[in-house]
């Protein structure tokens, strides 16, 4: 019970490191900066300049374009059926994030709370945690058979599968968080007359906000960038994602590198824009998802 006081405690955690004025190590700063620019940003620079050039400027690949060819984007946009693929991917991502947060947090909450009191929930906990050791590659052959039998080889079907397949990881993530929420809160709500669903949605769910953010970011990254699951599950050209479309159109681009790279930029851009704005939260979310 003692640790429970924390939630109501607003005294800021003592700063671990006192800010000490120290001399900046400029040599190290320069090394890290040069490395970042050449090694990390270099390939991205190449991607962008190629996307902006036409084949005649490709003799000097690394130079800045003399003339910017925006039409590469227009052509790539049409060629890869970008709007359709974008909407498909957006649908999968958004629906997956929303449903994942509601359903997975609910299951994780109940399992974490009752697994020490109840054998059934304890069994469920170990069931999901052990499923983390089964990679998708291991189940994909039979899964494809099953999915086509259920006629789920489409955008809605794959979205549904993302929600379900995220469970083991998300139960693990939420579980560590739920443990820290004092049970007295639920008991207080129970004494206040709240029913189980009300206890969860009015008291517990709002408290899980930091973990919702982490789960949302990880789910987003997973679905937006996933290639293997769409590759094996989605065959209808209308029902493809951005990543899959890049693979499918690879052959058609052949040596039209400018178009291909324009297309890559189109796919990378939404994520990059998001990263620019939410960089702090994304980094914090990914860190807290891996490190307790």
């Amino acid at each position: 019970m003692q640790a429970n006081a924390d939630l109501n405690n607003n005294t800021p955690a003592p700063r671990k490191s006192k800010k000490r004025k120290k001399k900046v190590n400029w040599t190290l700063t320069s090394v890290m900066m040069v490395l970042a620019i050449f090694a990390i940003l270099g390939p991205l620079y190449i991607t962008v300049v190629i996307a902006l050039k036409d084949p005649s400027q490709m003799t000097n690949v690394l130079s800045l374009p003399k003339q910017i060819h925006w039409e590469n984007f227009k052509n790539a946009w049409q060629m890869t059926n970008f709007p359709k693929m974008f909407l498909n991917t957006l649908f999968i991502t958004v629906v997956n994030v929303i449903f994942t947060i509601f359903t997975n947090s609910m299951a994780a909450y109940v399992i974490t709370r009752y697994r020490l009191k109840n054998k059934f929930f304890n069994m469920m906990y170990y069931y999901f945690i052990s499923a983390m050791f089964i990679p998708f590659n291991v189940i994909m052959l039979p899964l494809v058979k099953e999915v086509s039998a259920f006629h789920m080889d489409n955008i809605i079907g794959i979205t549904f599968l993302y929600i379900v397949f995220g469970l083991p990881q998300n139960i693990f993530l939420y579980s560590g968080f739920v443990k820290e929420i004092p049970t007295a809160l639920e008991e207080a709500a129970e004494m206040d007359g709240a029913k189980p669903m009300q206890i969860f949605f009015k008291v517990i769910f709002p408290l899980m906000k930091p973990m919702h953010a982490t789960v949302a970011i990880l789910s987003f990254m997973w679905t937006w960038n996933d290639f293997l699951m769409p590759l094996v599950l989605l065959s209808n050209p209308d029902q493809q994602t951005l990543q899959l479309a890049q693979y499918v159109f690879q052959g058609q681009f052949s040596t039209q590198y400018n178009l291909a790279f324009a297309s890559y930029v189109l796919v990378l851009l939404p994520v990059l824009i998001m990263y620019v704005f939410f960089q702090k939260y994304i980094i914090a979310g990914v860190t807290s998802g891996s490190v307790k």
């Binding site: 940003l41 960038n225 290639f227 990543q243 990263y275 960089q279």
Partner: peptide, 21 residues
Amino acid sequence: AIYFLPYMLGSLIVGFVFKFI
């Protein structure tokens, strides 16, 4: 933030870019 950037990008497209390189 720069060093973490590659995490955001799908490996497929990064693969294509490196294939060109």
